[in-house]
Amino acid sequence: MTKHLVHLKVNGELKEGYAEPRTLLVYFLRRELGLRSPHVGCDTTSCGACTVLMDGLPVKSCTVFAVQADGSEITTTEGLSKNGKLHPLQEAFWESHALQCGYCTPGFLMASLAILNRNASPTEEEIRRNLSGNLCMCTGYLNIIKAVKLASEKMAKVRN
């Protein structure tokens, strides 16, 4: 099958690679660009483990073709920390015990970041509604919801 050159800016760095027209963004990121954080859990856009930010908006990267993403800016969990220092959102997940096996975590982090980017202090209702496209089989979600609230407080402190 013919392959197409795909250019992306991933976590601030320019990257390129070849993709078949049928290659999904998540597999392009994982197999061509060597990222590990976007995980595949369902194939039906249900679980959100593959969530990344594409030009600032959360997308399930199993439902975007790599060629569709050509020229866009992608943020993944690998791009959250700076020089080994965790992002306040990561710290909040850690302190709240918002992860167990960790397979869904990168997707939840990116979906949560999208919420906080849109509204710096979301209500519990807003957090619940906007995370309902991500599945977690381990935690029961309560600590994830708690973590996003905590992250919003932490990020407010950083801003002030």
């Binding site: 990222l35 590990r36 954080s37 993944t76 969990t77 690998e78 920390s81 965790l86 990561q90 997940f93 850690w94 302190e95 015990h97 992860l99 960790g102 397979y103 975590t105 990168p106 982090l109």
Partner: peptide
């Protein structure tokens, strides 16, 4: 105690 395994999982170093 916060779990020691979490830092790696949170960084995406899985």
């Amino acid at each position: 105690l916060k779990r020691f395994e979490d830092r790696r999982l949170l960084l995406g170093d899985t």
